[in-house]
């Protein structure tokens, strides 16, 4: 077997298109998924027991079904009920639904973790519930949700590869097309992998900067006895 990455140059356009579409789908699902997620989170904290049960069921169902089945249900299932939609639209919608279940749990946990007094002190001074949410709760929640939301967004971005199975021409789909033309799986998948990896790094880096801007990136370092460190740490100590 010979390794010839240069032949991929003939297909650079397809790779670029696929990459761009994957990025667009990820951003769309991030926005749509978060809007849905915030809605479901607020529903999950409603006074009405029925509303809470609806939110809970939404989350449990979406989290326990493989994404590929959610995708097929939206793509093949909804047309069946009369709604016909293009693959890209169905794919983005399915991805948004999928990720919204996780985002909603992140948002809900962050709000519940905030001491009650924060909201109450804003209310007691005369802010309306919406003003208290906007001025006091939201900025603090934003800080705590960034790291878990980043992880979830990375997962979702990777999950978008499954959209290839309903012919959305994103990165994985283009990879499979090139692979079908060239029969060079090693080169193709190496390239695709590298691109996904780079997108992941960009997302992680963006999130890191965002976190630094929102303030609060203090991590306490644990100093341990070197003997215990032999077992409890996987990093080599930095040379001093």
């Amino acid at each position: 077997m010979r390794f010839d990455p240069w032949m991929l140059l003939d297909y650079w356009e397809l790779l670029l298109q696929g990459t761009w579409l994957t990025i667009r789908i990820t951003v769309m699902a991030l926005v749509l998924g978060y809007l849905l997620g915030i809605g479901v989170a607020l529903l999950g904290m409603a006074r009405s027991r029925t509303l809470r049960a609806i939110a809970g069921t939404y989350v449990e169902v979406l989290r326990n079904i493989p994404f590929i089945i959610i995708l097929f249900l939206v793509y093949y299932g909804l047309p069946f009920s009369g709604v016909r939609m293009p693959a890209l639209f169905a794919g983005t919608l399915a991805l948004s639904l999928f990720v919204s279940a996780y985002y909603s749990e992140i948002v809900r946990a962050a709000i519940l973790a905030l001491p009650r007094g924060q909201f109450e002190s804003a209310r007691a001074i005369g802010m309306s519930p919406a003003q208290a949410m906007w001025n006091v709760v939201a900025p603090q929640v934003l800080r705590t949700i960034i790291p878990p939301s980043t992880n979830m967004t990375l997962t979702m971005m990777k999950e978008s590869a499954v959209l290839s199975s309903i012919t959305v021409p994103e990165l994985t789909y283009q990879g499979l097309v090139i692979q079908g033309n060239t029969f060079a799986p090693f080169e193709v998948f190496a390239a695709i992998t590298l691109i996904y990896w780079m997108i992941a790094i960009v997302i992680a880096e963006t999130s890191r900067r965002l976190e630094a801007r929102v303030g609060l990136a203090q991590r306490q370092s644990v100093t341990r006895n070197p003997i215990a460190d032999r077992y409890l740490s996987l990093e080599r100590r930095p040379a001093r």
Binding site: P115, G117, S121, A124, V136
Partner: peptide, 11 residues
């Protein structure tokens, strides 16, 4: 009202 826990807004 000055709360017992003060409830200043840390951000």
């Amino acid at each position: 009202l000055v709360f017992q826990q003060l409830n200043l807004w840390p951000h």
